[in-house]
């Protein structure tokens, strides 16, 4: 079974993004970038499937700028076998990414596409679902557990207020949530070995995909600062205000 794992290069989760003074976006120049944490979880799960003998090959894919190579190398250091970079300077939206991935699915014929549930930059939470829609495949989003057997995937999903389990007929799309696993470190020996794994670069046009964005960013702003509240005199006053004024209890 072949697993395709799309990964995205984003501002590192430790960095608090800074809105540009001119309001056109968030400063990315000179900012540390890393693999989207949910995608790391997806890579880890794919590699575990391979270690269990269920998957035979793990192929990492990224859509983005040249430096997204580093993200793919990290995926390979974690255990992906090879990588494909769809090189573009355009900030491709989930719809465009899904179209690119659909074209790659046609080329690679994976049985499972495993990806993060959302990227921590645009917080769209859409690519997996959209790819599933375009392919007409089953989808298991926000997965906290995956079991594969007999051409089916049993996926436990994190839903509002609990967990739901679905059985998907393969091929299928699964998006990873936080509790699916704890990703391994890309160790130094494996990073060194990953330098020698194959990395192919192609252009969106090679796949015949139009990635023109549908959304234009009008402006990006810092959220309004929180206003200081009031000091209350007693516990009774506090409870009364929470009940009658704020209406939260």
């Amino acid at each position: 079974m072949k697993v395709l794992v799309p990964v995205k290069r984003v501002i590192d989760f430790n960095i608090k993004p800074r809105v540009k003074a001119d309001g056109t976006g968030v400063e990315t120049a000179g900012v540390k970038m890393s693999m989207n944490p949910f995608d790391e979880i997806a890579v880890e799960e794919a590699v575990r499937l391979k270690e269990k003998g269920i998957a035979t090959e793990v192929v990492a894919v990224s859509v983005g700028v040249q430096q997204a190579q580093d993200t793919l190398r990290t995926a390979m250091a974690m255990g992906a076998d090879r990588a494909i970079l769809v090189l573009t300077d355009v900030a491709v939206e989930p719809l465009g990414v899904a179209k690119i991935l659909k074209a790659l699915v046609a080329r690679e014929s994976p049985d499972l596409v495993l990806l993060g549930k959302q990227a921590i930059d645009d917080d769209m939470n859409a690519t997996g679902q959209m790819l599933a829609g375009l392919l007409g495949w089953a989808q298991g989003t926000f997965a906290s557990k995956i079991e594969i057997a007999d051409g089916k995937a049993a996926v436990t999903r994190e839903i509002d207020g609990g967990l739901e389990t679905l059985t998907l007929t393969l091929p299928a799309i699964v998006t990873a949530d936080l509790r699916l696993n704890e990703p391994r470190y890309a160790s130094l020996p494996n990073i060194m070995k990953a330098r020698k794994k194959p990395l192919e670069t192609i252009a969106p046009a090679d796949l015949g995909v139009d990635v023109t964005p549908r959304l234009t960013i009008v402006s990006v702003a810092e959220p309004p600062a929180r206003q200081q509240g009031i000091k209350v005199e007693s516990a009774a006053d506090l409870v009364a205000r929470l009940r009658n004024e704020a209406k939260v209890i």
Binding site: D122, D123, R214, L215, S219, P223
Partner: peptide, 14 residues
């Protein structure tokens, strides 16, 4: 909101 609420984006759809 984008970036976990660190910024608010105003977007226009075509």
């Amino acid at each position: 909101p984008i970036y976990a609420g660190s910024a608010l984006a105003t977007v226009k759809s075509s």
